[in-house]
Design a protein around this nucleic acid. Structure first.
Lengths: 223, 223
DNA sequence: GCAAAAGTGTTTGGTCTACACCCATGA
DNA sequence: TCATGGGTGTAGACCAAACACTTTTGC
């Protein structure tokens, strides 16, 4: 296909999705494997072409379902790319989303013949096609920031959870250990959590169960 | 034009630009006035349709020039909208940028028959068409954040400037007064400035002239 | 009673805020 | 000599990081 200045090639609008999750206590990303050229056998982000007449939301949900089998995830828009040379097949305009989801909510639905759960730390970016490496890294950076300043972690936790559960999420995603006392003080001071006055008895000593106060994304108050 | 589910309407990709500046010591935004329906005589963001075969950058520069006469501004991508009902004429996919620019660098070029310099604080959003109110407010929010955590203010200052010049930019954009001593301490501690060892003699007592160390956007180190 | 995870305070250093006066120059 | 904006320091409040032991339960 020619892509000269005065040709009539119409840009193809698409969505690509960076889906993060925690699986077996590892921070992971969901990728698909291309079966055709270009980038045959490379990992790429799940994605697809937008259908006119539907909103971005509707297109997102449809593409997510088609490419992964997953019905719903929490998501945020990341960036939009448009570059005549980005995709070698056509002139693509690509809207990138990143998403965070607990594996319990998608393992029933996911089609593992289509999508692979890849441990983030052992992902070799040499195996990733297109320009998806920089997209994935940018999404991770945004996620780290959101973890620190918002209640985004609610999307990867069950409705009721202990402070230890929560701390573990932070440690796995940020890739570092965190002091337990300081973590508790900081999280409780932000007032994003509510004590449910119930207990989790699955560990040895029972632990308090908390829930998030806000249903939607909330930037933490810096007191 | 119909926009049913199975029709063949092709989405039209477009750019809209939120351009911020300081003019006569006021924080301002550049808007155009629509001369046709819908939203006739309303203020709207300068914008235009993307041409295939060019990069986003190239399209941006062309649309900026066509709609305002301005040759170059510092810009960042903000968000992408796609909604069948957003524009009543066609199904638009709109990529939003916001830009920050010093008026000295565009007043020669700007075509004031096309674009209006509007003082932000006296802008009545009732006069703004489409959904551009929420876009403008979101862009302002992002700009405030960048002012605090990056060297983005370099784009609205000359190459050499005094700390008072810089402080004034912060005060005008953020809309509040700032303590002089604390401001100086904070800015100098971030190490984004370099003393040029020259002086500005235009005021009564000569003032030190500084310049930014980094040419590109830099997130300030939190020491 | 012991293993395992829950829960809890204090000290210290650093950062942020509020605040007022002297200095260098031009007119 | 006076008007104008440039330049400077300190004390108190608040926040962040480092750090170790006791409690509750199941087995």
């Amino acid at each position: 296909m020619t892509k000269g200045i005065f040709n009539l090639s119409i840009p193809v609008p698409a969505i690509d999705i960076v889906i993060f999750t925690i699986y077996k206590d590892k921070f992971c990303i969901l990728l698909t494997k291309k079966s055709d050229d270009p980038f045959k056998w490379k990992f790429v982000l799940p994605g697809g072409i937008l259908m006119s007449g539907y909103s971005l939301e509707e297109n997102f949900d449809r593409i997510l379902l088609e490419k992964t089998g997953i019905k719903w995830v929490y998501k945020e828009q990341l960036y939009t790319f448009w570059d005549p040379d980005r995709d070698t097949r056509w002139h693509a305009i690509s809207i990138i989303y990143y998403a965070l989801v607990r594996n319990e909510s998608f393992l029933q639905d996911i089609d593992l013949t289509k999508v692979h759960i890849i441990e983030y730390d052992s992902l070799n970016f040499k195996d990733v096609g297109f320009d998806h490496e920089k997209i994935i890294k940018y999404a991770k950076q945004r996620l780290d920031w959101k973890l620190e300043y918002t209640n985004i972690s609610k999307n990867i936790l069950p409705d009721y959870f202990t402070l230890s559960n929560l701390q573990k999420v932070y440690e796995i995603i940020l890739g570092k250990t965190i002091d337990k006392r300081n973590f508790r003080k900081k999280i409780l001071s932000t007032k994003i959590l509510k004590d449910t006055w119930t207990q989790d008895k699955s560990s040895n000593r029972p632990a308090r169960l908390y829930e998030f106060i806000d249903k939607d994304l909330k930037i933490m108050d810096i007191l």
